[in-house]
């Protein structure tokens, strides 16, 4: 379903040089697979998720998703592709504060195909245990509840893959497991693949497949083929 080949990503620095972040020769995921991605802070986990989601473009390489190379899609096509096939759960929830829980879910549907399915939005919110919070705006919800809305929002468009970027990092300890369970259960129910980034070994241990970014990222490991003037960072 998802296949990355020779994906490289670097960012420009103030001194004009480029900071290499990612150099991934190969990474893949199967449909419905649940994978946890672990790595040090600043190792490029979020950047990798952005590349998979099409939010950032790699400097080179291929990102194939269901047979489409999303690096070849135009930006607008990529936006639609992301809206329809990829759900995103952020570390900071990133709910829109002016919209109710239900509207946050509907908004995601609007951007996908313009026809929000209110019944499904309600179902998803009930599924994450927020049937009684439909009309509440994010500031009126607890952090745990906000992240559950984010999970419902990520599932709204029947995606093929959910990218969860440290979804429990900002959730109180008591609710962290609840969020992980919810993500794993709903992804199983909806037959959605899950790529979850975490720092927590407890969380990582629950997943059948653990990928360490340091293992797949070749930044600084490959022999230098040509003179480079940039700094290699982690």
């Amino acid at each position: 379903m998802l296949e990355l080949q020779e994906v490289k990503k670097s960012f420009p620095q103030w001194d004009g040089t480029r900071l290499e972040i990612l150099d991934i020769p190969y990474f893949s995921m199967e449909a419905g697979e649940q994978v946890v991605l672990v790595g040090k802070s600043g190792s490029g986990k979020t950047t990798l998720l952005h590349i998979i989601a099409g939010i950032s473009r790699p400097d080179s390489g291929y990102v194939r998703f269901d047979g489409w190379d999303i690096t070849l899609l135009s930006e607008a096509e990529c936006d639609r592709f992301r809206a329809k096939r990829i759900g995103y759960v952020f570390q900071t929830f990133n709910l829109l504060p002016g919209f109710t829980a239900l509207e946050n879910v509907l908004l995601s549907m609007t951007f996908a195909d313009g026809w929000p399915d209110k019944a499904r939005a309600k179902y998803l919110l009930e599924r994450v245990g927020l049937g009684h919070r439909l009309t509440h705006k994010p500031p009126m919800l607890s952090v745990g509840e906000q992240q559950r809305v984010a999970v419902a929002r990520a599932l709204a468009n029947n995606p093929r893959l959910i990218l969860a970027d440290e979804p429990t990092a900002n959730v109180d300890t008591g609710h962290q497991q609840q969020i992980i369970d919810l993500l794993r259960e709903t992804c199983e129910e909806e037959k959605v693949a899950l790529l979850l980034v975490t720092h927590s070994p407890e969380v990582a241990r629950q997943f059948p497949k653990i990928v360490r970014l340091e293992e797949i990222n070749q930044v600084g490991k490959r022999p230098i083929m040509e003179p480079v003037d940039h700094q290699v960072g982690s």
């Binding site: 989601a53 939010i55 930006e75 607008a76 936006d79 639609r80 992301r82 809206a83 329809k84 995103y88 952020f90 990133n94 709910l95 829109l96 504060p97 908004l107 995601s108 951007f111 996908a112 929002r153 468009n157």
Partner: peptide, 16 residues
């Protein structure tokens, strides 16, 4: 700008 980025991440196009 952050809200706009969220909308974009949810699939809203630049023109949207």
């Amino acid at each position: 700008r952050h809200e706009i980025a969220i909308m974009r991440a949810l699939g809203a196009s630049r023109s949207t």
